[in-house]
Design a protein around this nucleic acid. Structure first.
Lengths: 191, 191
DNA sequence: GGAGTTTTTGACAGAGCAGCCAAGAACTGC
DNA sequence: GCAGTTCTTGGCTGCTCTGTCAAAAACTCC
């Protein structure tokens, strides 16, 4: 019927997501996207419409991947340990690659000039917040986590600390300091 | 001896700082800087050398202002109350203007591509961390703040939460949620 | 193998940007 | 009022970026 596409749409979105993640939205050129996806700029416009549309797809993909990751927290561990490992994983990765979190980066970069994209990025916090609240609820049932605040409240507090920790990791804080703060944050959840 | 400058160097740096703060480093053009400082581009290059050098001056200015602000925490208040007000001030301002913290924005935007500028931005965290540690120490002496962690450790933990809260404010979280989290963070400092 | 459809390819136009520079303007000290 | 110095002014150069387009290519159905 028609000429077949040479590229894999899903793989292209993944590649674009990683480029945006590494360089940021504004600093990523369509040439960068062409190179990382392996497509030519013309095909990229034909397939996705442009930089902005591709970024929206990348943000949705990031949210999906984040949701999958957050829900994959090992169920065989106690809730507090699950939370600790979640924080550790994000912080250690950021120490290594200095990319932080795509959603955090996007809100920081675009909350002023591009509120719609920032709002889309904010959606990516939802799975994390839910996963944290679920873990808190589980810990509460087991009597291991304090019951004087709602799981939602505790989840937001942990999320704030987590995002601050990602910033510190990106800024080059020493891993020992980051890990100590993670432990402190987790300990403050105890009943 | 020579033709006098038409502009006020300090005011120009302040204006540039605010422009960088609002738009971010990459997204700020030299035309933007010319407009906000009231200088022509040529004068700007003559006086400061260029965009990057002006940004470095802006970061140093931001650090000085932050230090002055952090040290101006009302001494007539109890330490916990001083900390609460500091967090409130930052979060409420961010809710209003969506600019967050220039140092946070800079680290987030430039940790990857411009490590030197990110490192300079990180310096701006120091006065805040010191002020928090000092307040914690004072609260500890009064027996109002827990002594099972070092003031430095507690300061870093509060700072992480603070920066996460600024992100949430920038992302448009409801003020009630932000204030509740501030209160929770402060309460967790109690002895 | 021809018609029809979609993708690829390479190039082009238009805009914005950083950095530079030469000529003129403003001021001081003598 | 003249010499010397520094700042201002406006424009210029070269680069990069986004978005578009026409022609060629690849494939399917008939």
């Amino acid at each position: 019927m028609a000429r077949p596409r040479k590229f894999d749409t899903e793989a292209a979105i993944d590649a674009a997501m990683n480029t945006f993640w590494t360089k940021g939205y504004t600093a990523t050129s369509t040439d960068d996207l062409a190179e990382s996806t392996g497509m030519l700029r013309g095909s990229l416009y034909n397939a996705f419409g442009g930089k902005r549309q591709l970024f929206e797809l990348a943000l949705r993909r990031y949210r999906e991947q984040g949701a999958a990751g957050a829900n994959a927290m090992a169920d065989d561990q106690p809730p507090l340990e699950r939370i600790r490992r979640l924080l550790r994983a994000g912080v250690d990765r950021t120490t290594a690659d200095h990319r932080g979190c795509l959603a955090v980066n996007t809100v920081t970069e675009l909350a002023g000039p591009e509120p719609e994209l920032a709002h889309l990025a904010r959606q990516a916090f939802i799975p994390l917040e839910s996963a944290l609240a679920t873990a808190v609820e589980a810990g509460r049932v087991r009597g291991e986590i304090r019951a004087d605040r709602t799981p939602q409240q505790l989840a937001r507090q942990v999320m704030a600390a987590f995002h601050g920790l990602l910033l510190q990791a990106k800024a080059g804080f020493e891993p020992e300091s980051l890990h100590a703060t993670i432990d402190a944050v987790v300990d403050d959840l105890r009943a």
